[in-house]
Design a protein around this nucleic acid. Sequence first.
DNA 1: CTGGTGCCCTAC
DNA 2: TTAGGTAGGGCACCAG
Length: 894
Amino acid sequence: MTYKDDIGIISGRYHSVEANAENGIPESTVLELFGRSKSGESVCLLVSGLSPSFEITPLSAWNEELGVSDFVLQRIKDVEAMKDVVSVSGPVMKLTDLGVRPVWSVTVRQPFLVPNLRKILSKQSWQIYSGDIPFLNRLFLDYDLRMHVSVEGTVVDRRNDSNENLERTHAVVQAGGSGRYSVDVTVACNVSQLKDCEPFQVPFKVFSFDLETSIEHETILCAAAWIEDMGTGTRQSYSFQGEEASIMENLTLIVRSMDPDIITGYNIDNFDLPRMYDRMQAQTKSKQWRKKAQLFGWGRVEQSESESKRNRSGLFPRRQSTRAWNVAGRSVVDAWWQARMALRPQRETLSFISNLLFPEDTEKHKMDVDASKMDMEWANRPEEVMEYCIRDAALPLDILSALQVIRRKEAVAAVAKVTFDTAAIGSTSQLVDSLVIRLADSENVAVPLTGSAEAKEGQITGGYVHEVDAGLHPWIAVLDFKSMYPSIMIGQNICYTTRIDPAQPDQPAVDEPVYTAPTGARFRHQSVRKGLVPRLLEDLMAQRDVHKAALKVAKQEGNIQQESFHDAMQYAVKILMNTFYGVFASGFYRFTHRDLGSSITAWARHNIKAIIAQLEEEGHGVVYSDTDSIFVRSPVDASAPSSMREEEILAAQNEEADAVEKMKEWNIAKQSMIDFGLEIAERYSRDSAVLEFEKGLSVFFSHGAKKRYVGQVVWPSEEMLIRGYETQRTDSFNYLTSTMKRMFSHALADEGNELVKYALARVQAVKNAEIDASELILAKSCKGRVSSNGGIDFTKDYANPDSMAQVRVAKARIALGLGFTSGMKVSYIVADASQRPMRVEPWLENEENGGISTYDGQFYAERLAAALGRITEAFGWTAKELVSGNKQTTLFSF
DNA sequence: CTGGTGCCCTAC
DNA sequence: TTAGGTAGGGCACCAG
């Protein structure tokens, strides 16, 4: 029976099929792609017809005139005769780091043999290319596929087919599968039957779960799970209690029968999944794979012994790296990690995040069970605990939905042309690899191994940051280079393939145009050789424009689904474009050279400094600049007002003559700033370096430190813009940030007296301990590694762990039996800063007043004053004076 | 009290 | 073993 549909690929792996002389089956490698079809079925595609290979070139000197020597040809024959090598083809002339050279392609029996062959051949003076690309990726690269594919194939197996005489099992094995897959339909096809298809929103199924565990015995007390169908928008809940083994078996039954594509939960990476794994081990002996499979066999594969032994993409979820989990056919997306990345919350508990995202929905984050006393709670009121567990299993679905996590990952996968799983948990270099290698292959550019580039010595110089003039500055136009680093890469044709290596014989002709970076590094002109990366970036820029245009249309038509689709796509393109520079400036990427990163930043500094100099020469003061932005004083009449006090705005509305006049002048000044900003942007834009008038500020304030400023934006929208200051920091405390925010309002309205008065009052209040402790919670992230005895080792991450407040707090939390995972934020209150190190108490979310008895008012007053003092100093008050409450009368006061 | 170091978090 | 970058402010700690 033929099968035809469009499919969203979640992840994949390969299966090595041994030759079978009796059945006439030759040795082959079959790819297993797991995903969900447009019609909603879960699918496993068995793709045949692709063989593993890599490329080689002799390291010896190459002379184009002499061609390939007999000696080299003999050596190629020797390679062909090697065990595990199937064939050698070529040569093809490819651009390598040694210039253009003949490159042979070596086809091998199985992908897992490549690393060893690679090692042997490089010892025999062969240079290796394309030798470290995961076999699955070859499919996507060679056939220009991405997450969304159209397939035509043959149905091999369906979930509900009877398998009485193992005929379905045999059919799957015959098609190159490793056993009956736990999916709706298994389809066999040849690579040629896969086609790229337009991205569509896959009707994913998402599984979210939560465990409640005994602190005393580490056992699982109960569990809850939800399955969401993104196609229909429906959800279903499940809950289990009783024997630990039965809870785990039931969860596994849900996973296998409901067959989700994505597994989520809150902090499952560091808690629920490791706990399930540990409990599986505790419940079974090492050989009992059947029982293990019943407990935690979540992979989309057969519950067989060989699947249970796989280390990657197998039956059991496993930690692939320090962060990511991996299981056959599904993708693990932790809602905690996603929320943390997207929201940068001050605290990271589920209730805090829920409060942040769903403030109106108090039901969602009511704290009714004390998780730190779970054994007691479970004994006394299991029903409430169960209810709490069910709710906590549902919230991750709400979080992923509110943050649009899944659709955004899907868009990244579509743009970077990778699987969903790679977009969700892969590194940024994998995204860039996907696009660059594709183009390199089609342009006959050899793909070097990761780590083959010379190590980068020290750091490269980064962006230029202009000194800030302290104080208030009226009418500032903010100009910004549009996608500065990508534009430079395009404009100067910067690429691994265009760099002119002074050590290589292939030098440009005397009259050949080249780009010379301020560092002296040279790059070919695009008329001679257009770089791969500049071409990719141009293509991405064009793609973004397409999606932005479509987004606009969808908005006008009120098509919400199209709107969110194109928004996710244009955002994904933006993210990807900005990723390029970072990867190329890193020390270990396969297509990098230290000259690439340093040339980009050198040009950036050169460009921005040139514009600053020209503006200053024209008499326009540049107040600040950071990397790609310029804050320039507009030529507005010095007497024009820059701020309107609230009462003046009211008065103007009441048509009081003076106020109306002032408002008129203010509006004239604003218009003149806008005209100025637009004019400067136009005049300083070049082909590839587009300067945009981004914002107009009526007032700009800084106390004189780089990367810290405030502005009153009046164009294109009205808002207060704050950068760098404590209000932006998640390791500050609420009382400080709210105070500072209000002070900024006063500062921008030129209300110096009110500002100082307010600062004084707030400092005095905390000094007198009149402030609620919940306003004074400090939070910092804390690292640490789980050591073999199960404890946390802080010494690997900290030179002197106990001198760090967050470590002391983490230790106190652990002692209380509260969860701790590396990288999490811990909250605390300073109880006594007079001792060294200061005494801190953990803030306990579910206890009355955080479980805090007292706080050090003097400490908070001083720390608040230190931060506020930097602002008030511009208005004549120092931090010390804020704490003491009065200005020191000195000899010079009068 | 000062200056150096380690660390966190931010801007771009 | 594992993989985007640099610039910068500011706090706590600690030695001298």
